[in-house]
Amino acid sequence: MKVLLEDLGKIDRAKKGKVYKAGTVFIGMSATRGGDVHYLDEDGEIESKYATVEFNGKYNSKYIYYAILSEHNRWINRYIQHINVTISDLKAMEINIITDINKQNEIVNKLDLLDSWIENEERLIYMWKNIKKSSLEKMLI
């Protein structure tokens, strides 16, 4: 089902000093930063350079975050013609969602697991690069 982002929650510019609830999605307001979509895992502040999307609780907010991620780059390249994204631009973003909350939860669990695997692999790559760097330094002494 296609829905407008504005139908899923309140969209506004982040306010300095405000503490946002976990589950808030925040999106970069500069089109040149394409793909700048984040999920707030725990209550906290968000820089004012972002727009916030606070959901109404009808759907899994992490699922909506992933749905926004899947559409964001295509949307920004297709519809944004100027330097910055406006709140009205974000409100008009159309995303595909599944309305069954159990399916949403299942998708979120699988995508979170993939993210965890990716983070582990990135740590391994970082460690191997450091081992290589250290070995090269020792080799050239």
Rank of each mutant, 00 (worst) to 15 (best):
G17W: 10
I68Y: 03
S88A: 07
V53Y: 00
K129E: 12
T52R: 01
H72G: 03
K91Y: 15
L69Q: 09
K110M: 07
G35L: 08
Q81W: 13
E47N: 12
Y126I: 15
I101L: 01
S61D: 10
M127E: 07
M29P: 02
I64E: 13
L113S: 08
K2S: 03
K49Y: 09
I87G: 10
D100K: 11
Y20P: 15
N77Q: 02
M127L: 12
V108Y: 11
K62S: 14
A51P: 07
I141M: 14
E137V: 10
L5Y: 06
E121Q: 15
G28M: 01
K138M: 05
K103Q: 08
N73C: 03
E106S: 14
W117C: 11
L140C: 04
K10N: 15
K62G: 12
D7A: 14
K103G: 05
I141A: 12
L40K: 13
N77L: 07
G28Y: 02
K21A: 10
W117E: 01
V85Q: 02
H72N: 10
I83N: 03
Y66C: 05
R78Y: 13
S88F: 11
E45M: 13
K138L: 01
L136S: 12
M127Y: 14
L114D: 01
N56W: 11
N84S: 08
I68C: 05
N105T: 05
H38V: 00
E6I: 11
I68L: 07
N73S: 08
T99L: 12
E54F: 00
D36R: 02
T24K: 02
Q104G: 09
I118Y: 14
D36P: 05
E94M: 12
K16D: 00
M127K: 09
V25M: 06
E122G: 07
A51Y: 08
Y66L: 08
R74E: 06
I87M: 11
D12M: 11
T52C: 03
N105R: 07
Y59H: 13
K15L: 09
H72S: 04
A22T: 11
D41Q: 04
G34K: 10
Y79A: 14
K129W: 12
I125L: 03
E137C: 04
E106N: 15
Y59D: 04
Y65M: 11
L90M: 11
G28N: 05
S135M: 09
E121S: 14
N130I: 04
I11C: 06
K129H: 13
V37H: 02
I131L: 05
D43T: 10
W75C: 03
G44I: 04
E47H: 11
L124F: 09
T99H: 12
